[in-house]
Design a protein around this nucleic acid. Structure first.
Lengths: 205, 205
DNA sequence: ATTTAGTTTAACGGCTTTGTTAAACAACTT
DNA sequence: AAGTTGTTTAACAAAGCCGTTAAACTAAAT
């Protein structure tokens, strides 16, 4: 999987683009071949089947998501310190691949049997992760709020604006993509600030 | 569209279930007929084509989303007062239809030409909405933070945990659906509280 | 000069999907 | 008793899709 011919890359690029946009069932092998400017036979030559090709695309997409999530859940560093860098990384990733959140979430939601397997592959043990969170000070810091709610808030603030890009872009930013991107960059500062406020606010009560 | 025969309803119910889960291209008319326990011919009898049937389902899904959003953007009431009721409504709606967010977002993102039309139908004028927000005190209340960011935060906190249900459920709540639902209900209190904190915190700086 | 890897073209079989039509049936209405 | 409405069954044509194969071509490597 490390070495890729030029053609293989062209295929992946086109497959990503189309699968992200139209989904697996909504994209034909011919569509992908056309977009890549090559012959349909080559798709089977390199990836054997549509399923396998889709799988490659899906795993690559997950690969951009999971490390961040896993790192957060398993990190020993204090949650508070961890946030700014995490937010920065996540948002930068999303700015370049705004379609990934929906793509991944849609696939996970329509194909639920994937989740257990993915959890394993991620090397996440939910129970341990939760314990670590509590012990490592998340619940102290948040003054009693369920640490899962804290994580949920953080992820929501980071990811949703990208999952909902078409709506946000058109309604809130009148279709001005640059303004939208600028706003997303701004959130790299806003979100850690918010999280900090929330935590200290809660603690001081 | 108001009067519906029993069969028509069965069709819609099955079509919703399957379109939500597998998407338009991933669902065949036969699938829907089978799920509804009727003959495939009847689908065409009532809805003429797959496109039309999908359209009916999509519009119904939007119909549960849009009013909340539109009301918020156009309301004259102060933003602060408005939030708790809005959050309650939105979350209750989502608890009963957790698949709608992804379904709608996925469709809007794969079919972008829809957005302008939808904005019209919603009766939203983005420019006016923004002005109203600013004049009506959102920006004052938020101490200078772009009101669009405030709205984005609110929506993110409300919607994302449902869009990401499979992940959240499995990783944070170990697959325990009741615990998940309970957590979502808890958010009806948490979110307004957070928003209030954020605003007053910001104002007092 | 021959081999090799990548690529194209063309074609095929098998399968699924959509939309349509015609004929028959059931049940309820008038 | 005749008619209307909803429903089923069966069948069809047209189209699309997937995976495979065989044959030919290109260009670079040996």
């Amino acid at each position: 999987m490390v070495l890729q011919t030029e053609t293989e890359q062209k295929i992946i690029v086109s497959a990503e683009k189309l699968f992200y946009q139209k989904g697996k069932a909504g994209t034909s092998m011919q569509d992908i071949a056309d977009d890549a400017g090559i012959n349909r036979t080559l798709l089977n030559y390199y990836f054997r089947s549509k399923d396998k090709l889709f799988e490659a695309v899906f795993r690559k997409a997950m690969g951009r998501f999971v490390p961040n999530l896993a790192a957060m859940l398993h990190s020993d560093i204090s949650f508070e310190e961890y946030i700014p860098a995490l937010v920065e990384t996540v948002i930068d990733t999303m700015i370049e691949n705004p379609q990934i959140p929906i793509f991944v979430l849609q696939e996970l939601s329509s194909n639920r049997e994937r989740m257990p397997q993915i959890i394993k592959e991620m090397g996440i043990d939910p129970v341990i992760a939760l314990k670590k969170m509590e012990e490592a000070g998340v619940s102290k810091v948040t003054g009693g709020m369920d640490p899962r709610q804290v994580i949920l808030n953080l992820l929501s603030l980071c990811i949703f604006p990208f999952a909902a890009k078409p709506v946000v872009l058109n309604i809130l930013y009148s279709g001005d993509n640059e303004a939208y991107i600028e706003a997303m960059k701004e959130r790299k500062k806003i979100i850690p600030q918010l999280m900090k406020q929330l935590m200290s606010q809660n603690r001081s009560r």
